[in-house]
Write a protein that binds this DNA or RNA. Structure first.
Lengths: 337, 337
DNA sequence: CTGAAAGCGCTTACAG
DNA sequence: CTGAAAGCGCTTACAG
């Protein structure tokens, strides 16, 4: 076990001060007019000794850790996994490291994660905010810590954010169902006050209304912690009571859960029920009736979030609101009724 | 933007030294026999001022960052996403934060990630090692940095590791195919010298041999960077030339890629070809012929890796080799021939 | 061209 | 019971 070597070790080896070593190793030798031979010698010794700068010391000195915190609902969910991957890649290009935390949509968990990451002096946050976490976000802003919200945001808080154009996406998706002849269309969404859910439900409502389809045939409010059970009940009700002929699922996880139900009850898609999902998933491809879905530009969302955050970290105080466009991937599960 | 408050601020406020504040806030007031009223006063001021300890300073002082590095192939792959999630949860219970890096199975990327995390003084690593990364692992060991390998390991390096019992898993899976009457069985695996692949192929070979099934009917060696193309060619060859009646896929990603091919070419499962996958996936459930697969105990793998790593970080130098048991989930895709 | 020194925010052995 | 001081490994303004 070789002990770590520090600037001091190099300085002592050559018999100079740590200042010189620091200058040279940071490429400031010209500016500081260090003798060329000395610079060369310093670099050689650093190499021989296998010198690796201690980021922790640097961070304490400079106040910047070159680390960003990424808080999302659940890293095991492929939607967030893909988002995290792009964030990781983009951040790393800029020399930043990412620390990920999963909130499970709980504001308590989210608070705990934010606290430990603030202790660790991350330079900024990209947050997929959980319901009820307004004060956590405000707290960061008050402390002057850069933060960008992704996927959703709080209208009452003035932060940069990058989200899908949720209203339009839902409107467009349901319009497609209507055009294809479906009339008794329901939406399966989370019981949530968060803007992305509200906007998706609003898009559904308004297009239904515009087409005089009795506004809301059926709006299911699923509880995050009881997703499978609630989806199951909602689907049974939609089919038996409401006689829905099409269902629009407002997220990735809800869509998958819905597919399991359809399989369980042997419902015919699209014959008995048209199915419109969200986010995309390999399962949508392998389901016997390939699933039509609203595709989100995950890559763009992640890149844009990182860009905005790095901008803030570099001192920009401009607030940006980005709305990204969806793409409707049309397949068999919503064929003409 | 409120400036961060430090121990010094609290000390100055009360007019005492930082030592006292440090003692009290670390719960060492009894031991250090600090006056009860003074302790109370310190705690009050700390609360009023919203004091948050600076982890970076603490880390520099103590040499421990309470952070662990997790290097895996790709966080966007659900297998690794799930692994990461459990690692995150377990680490956080112990007060540790996790930094994740995706290597894409490239030793170059892996080297870069390890270097930056060593700079950042992580306390230890959990690594799903990429091919050719032996020296990186050895480097960590030489530096005395705790490391646990997961999912695979290097037989020539004496590290703790926790992996699936790969030979047995493959043996068992292929035996199941043989029992169900399949004879011309092929395996689709990555072209890789890594132990987990070699063991899976070995399990396949030996059970074929034991049953006098011409050893290896067909072994496809897929290149990681050209997975879809190579799988496509391998499947065409297996079916046309080799006349395979069953295929065993050695990983999660290979299985999914194989399913896409089957869909593309309209192959009947299990009629024309029996299908045996790895790791599990929602797609296995939704494929028209539910897929039989080798299930890995991801939860256990993650927990055990964290436990072993924390043990090492706390000073244990015992090397542990854990082999976990698989479970064969039998369904329609491998029904009696 | 080069060095001594202060300081980032903590902890802790030592002294009183 | 309490404080002064050193030190973790860096950077950098200042002096020479």
């Amino acid at each position: 076990m070789s002990k770590r070597v520090s600037l001091k070790d190099i300085a002592r080896e050559i018999g100079i001060s740590t200042a010189l070593v620091s200058y040279v190793l940071n490429g400031r030798e010209k500016e500081k007019r260090v003798a060329a031979e000395m610079a060369e010698r310093i670099r050689n010794v650093a190499r021989e000794l296998n010198y690796v700068p201690n980021q922790v010391a640097l961070s304490l000195k400079t106040g910047s850790t070159r680390t960003i915190g990424l808080i999302l609902a659940d890293i095991a969910n492929p939607f967030f996994g893909q988002l995290a991957r792009v964030v990781e890649d983009e951040a790393s290009k800029a020399g930043y490291t990412v620390i990920i935390g999963s909130s499970d949509e709980s504001s308590h968990r989210s608070a705990a994660i934010i606290e430990t990451l603030v202790n660790r002096q991350v330079d900024g946050f990209i947050i997929v905010p959980a319901e009820g976490s307004q004060n956590q976000v405000r707290g960061l802003i008050d402390k002057g810590i850069p933060v960008v919200l992704a996927d959703r945001y709080f209208p009452e808080i003035n932060t940069s954010h990058v989200v899908l154009s949720n209203y339009e996406a839902a409107f467009d998706a349901v319009k497609h169902l209507i055009r294809n002849g479906y009339k008794r269309i329901g939406i399966v969404a989370y019981q949530s006050g968060m803007i992305h859910m509200r906007e998706r439900v609003r898009g559904y409502r308004e297009v239904m209304e515009q087409h005089k389809l009795q506004k809301a045939i059926s709006i299911s409010e699923i509880r995050f912690e009881h997703m499978h059970k609630d989806v199951d009940e909602a689907m049974q009700k939609a089919i038996r009571q409401t006689k829905a002929d099409a269902l629009f699922f407002a997220t990735n996880s809800l869509s998958i859960s819905g597919l399991y139900c359809i399989k369980k009850y042997g419902i015919k898609v699209p014959g008995e029920l048209a199915f419109l999902g969200f986010d995309g998933s390999e399962s949508f491809d392998f389901f016997y009736s390939p699933v039509t879905f609203v595709e989100q530009p995950i890559q763009e969302m992640a890149k844009e979030s990182v860009n905005l955050l790095l901008g803030q970290i570099q001192g920009s105080s401009v607030i940006h609101h980005r709305q990204l466009q969806h793409k409707l991937i049309i397949r068999e599960s919503t064929q003409l009724a």
